[in-house]
Lab assay of single mutants.
Amino acid sequence: MFYPNSPQTSPQLTQIPYGQQYAMMQRQIQQPYHPFATTEPQARLYPYHYQGPIQQEQGGFITQQSTAASPQYVQMRVTPVDQSIMSGYPNQTANGSSSSSFNYNIHPQQQQQQQQQQQQLRHHAMPVGSVPLQDDRYRKQLIVNYLAPDVTSTDLHELFSRFGELDGARIIYDKQTNMSKGYGFVYFCHAEDAKEAVERMSGYEFHGKWLKVGYSTNPLNIVPSNSSPYVHAGSRGAAG
Rank of each mutant, 00 (worst) to 15 (best):
F2A: 07
Y3H: 06
P4E: 06
N5Q: 00
P7Y: 13
S10Q: 10
T14Y: 09
Q15R: 04
Q15E: 12
I16Y: 04
G19H: 00
G19D: 14
Q20C: 10
Q21V: 11
Y22M: 02
A23D: 06
A23L: 10
M25G: 01
Q26Y: 15
R27F: 15
Q28F: 10
Q28N: 14
Q30P: 06
Y33K: 11
Y33T: 02
P35A: 02
F36I: 06
A37V: 11
T38M: 15
T38S: 13
T39P: 06
E40C: 13
P41R: 03
A43Q: 15
R44M: 14
L45M: 05
Y46F: 12
P47V: 15
Y48D: 02
H49S: 10
H49K: 02
H49G: 14
Q51T: 06
G59I: 11
G59W: 14
Q64C: 10
Q64G: 09
Q65I: 13
T67C: 00
A69R: 04
A69E: 12
P71F: 14
P71E: 14
Y73L: 04
Y73S: 02
Y73C: 13
M76W: 06
R77Q: 13
R77H: 00
V78T: 01
V78D: 13
P80T: 03
D82C: 05
S84N: 07
N91R: 11
Q92N: 14
T93K: 10
T93H: 01
A94G: 08
S97H: 02
S98I: 09
S98N: 03
S98T: 13
S98C: 15
N103I: 09
Y104Q: 00
N105V: 15
I106E: 14
I106T: 03
P108Y: 10
Q109N: 04
Q110G: 06
Q112S: 09
Q114T: 03
Q114F: 15
Q114N: 09
Q115K: 06
Q116N: 00
Q117A: 03
Q119P: 09
L121A: 12
H123F: 15
H123Y: 01
H124Y: 01
A125H: 07
G129L: 03
S130Q: 11
V131P: 08
V131A: 05
L133M: 08
D136L: 06
Y138I: 03
I143E: 00
V144L: 09
N145H: 05
P149D: 14
T152C: 04
T154H: 01
T154W: 09
D155M: 15
D155R: 03
D155Y: 06
L156Q: 13
H157D: 03
E158G: 08
F160N: 09
F163G: 11
F163C: 04
E165W: 09
L166T: 00
A169N: 03
R170S: 02
K175T: 09
K175N: 12
Q176W: 15
N178Q: 02
S180V: 09
K181C: 05
G182P: 02
G182C: 10
G184W: 06
G184A: 02
V186C: 04
V186K: 12
Y187G: 09
A191S: 03
E192M: 05
E192L: 03
D193N: 04
D193L: 02
A194N: 13
A194Y: 13
A194G: 06
E196L: 12
A197Q: 15
A197I: 12
A197C: 07
E199K: 10
E199I: 07
E199F: 00
M201Y: 01
S202E: 11
S202C: 01
S202Y: 05
Y204R: 09
E205T: 06
F206I: 03
G208F: 10
K209W: 00
K209R: 06
K212E: 09
G214Q: 00
G214D: 03
T217E: 04
T217Y: 09
N218D: 01
L220P: 03
I222A: 03
V223C: 10
S225A: 02
S225L: 05
S228I: 14
P229V: 07
Y230L: 09
Y230A: 09
V231T: 00
G234I: 05
G234L: 08
R236D: 12
A239T: 08
A239P: 10
G240H: 15
